[in-house]
């Protein structure tokens, strides 16, 4: 009966692993809610960091993430379209696909260092543009891979139907193929947006941070995540409380965007 016992033990340990994993999720979420909600006041949203609020940080973080998406989504989608629709499975396509896959897991701090050398040093200081470029570099490979994979799911017959109707290749891609893959690509965009909006490492020495409300991308730019890192290390209670509220709000934003993305594809499967 030894093997039956062993079987039981292993199955119990596996179940236990799942319980441990989920407990950590709830532990972290509970901590954030408990510490975050109790320190949120109306002024948290109406004031800038210099006055103990996070208004400028939220605006700054969203501004950078949105502009980064405006750069990364078209570029990534076009790249994915080329890989799937134009490359005809060439050697070059497989090299690009592999490199972009590797880029997806590149350490984000290294991307920060790279952008620092290229867009901070020559311009004489931290600036919002550099932060945007760092985020865009993180996002492009994710969009490429999503587009590539989603276009692969579109049945060949749809493209053939387009050809039979006399459509030119780019019209077929734009009006038929992309439409068919719309939901999947949108989900990919939302998930990657949720990822870059929570990034800290690539912003540390690109956009850095600012205490004040600004929309000037040529200057240091306010960042929610970088502020959390700074605030958490200050010894005073007020800074820590603000760090907790900011963490709670950031996590809520990330998880809501993430769940929205997942919900969209839920009905498809």
């Amino acid at each position: 009966m030894n093997r039956l016992l062993l079987n039981k033990i292993i199955l119990m340990l596996s179940t236990l692993s799942a319980i441990i994993g989920i407990s950590f999720l709830f532990w972290i979420l509970a901590t954030l809610t408990y510490k975050g909600v109790s320190s949120i006041h109306l002024s948290t949203f109406s004031q800038d960091l210099v006055n103990g609020g996070i208004r400028n940080l939220l605006v700054g973080q969203f501004t950078m993430a949105i502009i980064a998406s405006l750069i990364a989504v078209p570029l990534g989608m076009f790249a994915g379209i080329w890989l799937r629709e134009y490359s005809n499975g060439s050697k070059l396509a497989s090299i690009i696909r592999n490199l972009s896959d590797v880029m997806m897991s590149a350490p984000s701090i290294v991307i920060g260092v790279f952008v620092y050398a290229l867009f901070v040093v020559p311009f004489g200081g931290y600036n919002g543009f550099a932060g945007i470029i760092a985020l865009a570099i993180m996002m492009i490979p994710i969009i490429i891979s999503t587009t590539d994979n989603m276009l692969a799911l579109v049945p060949k017959e749809l493209r053939e139907a387009g050809v039979a109707l006399g459509g030119s290749k780019h019209k077929i891609i734009l009006q038929i193929v992309i439409k068919a893959a719309k939901v999947g690509i949108t989900t990919g965009v939302l998930l990657s947006f949720a990822r870059i909006i929570g990034e800290t490492a690539p912003l540390l020495f690109t956009s850095a941070n600012s205490q004040f409300f600004t929309m000037d991308l040529t200057e240091q730019f306010p960042s929610l995540t970088v502020s959390i890192y700074n605030l958490a290390t200050y010894p005073d209670e007020a800074s820590r409380e603000l760090a907790w509220s900011a963490s709670f709000i950031l996590t809520a934003i990330v998880l809501i965007i993430n769940l929205t993305g997942r919900y969209m594809t839920r009905n498809k499967k």
């Binding site: 799942a18 994993g21 989920i22 950590f24 999720l25 532990w27 972290i28 901590t31 954030l32 510490k35 998930l191 949720a194 990822r195 929570g198 990034e199 800290t200 490492a201 995540t225 959390i228 890192y229 958490a232 820590r240 760090a243 907790w244 963490s247 950031l250 996590t251 990330v254 998880l255 993430n258 769940l259 997942r262």
Partner: peptide, 24 residues
């Protein structure tokens, strides 16, 4: 639900793990 919980755990930004780890 378990898959979603595990995937949400992956979605939490690393700075949050840092905050939680440091104080709790």
């Amino acid at each position: 639900p378990v898959s979603i919980a595990i995937e949400l755990l992956a979605a939490i930004p690393s700075i949050i793990y840092g905050m939680w780890g440091l104080f709790y």
